[in-house]
Design a protein around this nucleic acid. Structure first.
Lengths: 236, 236
DNA sequence: AAGCGCGATATTGTATACAATAATAGGCAA
DNA sequence: TTGCCTATTATTGTATACAATATCGCGCTT
């Protein structure tokens, strides 16, 4: 499969590695590229009208983020996190997000609440809209909420860690998600903002943990899936 | 300055990007390469007897880790974290290391304690040894202790986050450290292991925070240093 | 003498060419 | 027909060539 669904409107002249990286990352996060999809250097290159050099740079960067895996002499593939990796990703989010919330809380005033509510509004708008593009935008918007909170912590390092975790979460949801319905309960984000607005950090943290639980509850993280249990797959 | 102190014994045939990256990272972490040092692509390439292609790949990877900064059309330099960055690095360690400790604690049994004590013994051996190479090894060993604990958490993602933080901490210490003496109080590591051995996680966390405080206390993180305050520098 | 501008030089950015490895298909033998 | 082996093809890995940009030094001007 040659991904023809990669470059939205990047026909602007003079693409650089960073833009390619962002375009591919967006495509992965919005699930236009399925886990396992091969990203051939020449294909991607011709798509963006650049040489393999820049493509390789972009792919290398994405592999560092854990969004693609490059196999020596075989090429780059959109990552398919194993069950174990999926569990680690969410375990890490459970550990980090409360910490981030506590860090961010002191910096959250009227301005920040307004900013977060704007994100919520956008989420809601997308929820009420139908069609695949809206679903994709919704996935991204849902992640953006978590990232916005992380940014408010004022700690760029934490923000970067969350960038990675949110992006990889999207992959996990693509692989193991069951309900087609939105990945993130929108109302839960709302409740978290409410708690933040009243400076009730403890409640906000509790809600965040519940929220992550709910996301993970929608996942089917049973061991199978890895070819080994073929008989099991047919037996039922 | 062309770094002649980079490749220890890498004359082994067929170096790849990963090895170059590791060699440079070690050189940075062990402070054989000072912050601000320029890493010219051709120089590094001829040093390892590879083309610029591989060097660029290695440099790109290191820039993701925050160990070097690449300026467009100007080249790559060993990073010199600003005061603000330095503070964020340590702030993040203060947030993460207790979390890691709590995660690791359940997995720490006799075997793990033995492993940690072996690291402590190595640290002590180096402390009692004189000469620059021993000092370098000591810096690395001190970081290795923190990384070993992170590894015991069983969470590869947390481990990777700590990899980055420990490496960058080494840069900060190189830049802002005052005492020439060892960066990490060795006895503090020992106390932490003692607490872990008795499953006293709360104490271990408290000791860890104190430990980080002590490291940071040895730093001179006053704003100056950035050229702007020349008059201040001479005034005193 | 100091400052400015311009040309020479060196270094990085990108594309391409070549080498090495893996995937594929076809044919041969059992 | 099935299985294996080989030749072919395609793709990645690495080096090199060329283009673009920045740096440095020289000479000119004021």
């Amino acid at each position: 499969m040659t991904p023809a669904n990669l470059a939205p409107a990047e026909s602007a002249i003079d693409i650089d590695a960073q833009q390619i990286r962002d375009a591919i990352r967006d495509a992965i996060v919005e699930r236009r590229l399925a886990p396992g999809t091969k990203l051939s250097e020449t294909d991607v290159g011709s798509l963006f009208k650049v040489s393999r050099t820049l493509v390789r740079a972009a792919l290398q960067a994405l592999s560092y983020e854990g969004l693609i895996s490059v196999e020596k002499n075989r090429g780059a593939f959109v990552a398919s996190p194993s069950v174990a990796e999926a569990q680690q990703i969410f375990a890490t989010r459970r550990l980090l997000e409360p910490v981030i919330l506590r860090e961010a809380a002191p910096h959250i005033g009227k301005t920040q609440v307004t900013e977060l509510r704007a994100l919520l509004a956008e989420e809601e708008r997308l929820t009420n809209q139908r069609g695949a593009p809206a679903r994709r935008a919704e996935i991204k918007a849902s992640g953006d909420f978590h990232l916005a909170v992380a940014a408010m912590s004022g700690n760029a390092i934490l923000k970067r860690f969350m960038d990675e975790l949110v992006a990889r979460s999207s992959l996990v949801i693509a692989l193991y998600g069951q309900s087609v319905i939105s990945s993130c309960g929108h109302s839960e984000h709302q409740q978290i903002v409410d708690a933040l607005e009243t400076k009730d950090v403890a409640t906000a943290c509790a809600l965040m943990l519940q929220h992550i639980d709910h996301i993970e509850a929608d996942l089917d993280l049973r061991p199978a899936r890895k070819g080994s249990d073929l008989k099991d797959a047919f037996h039922l």
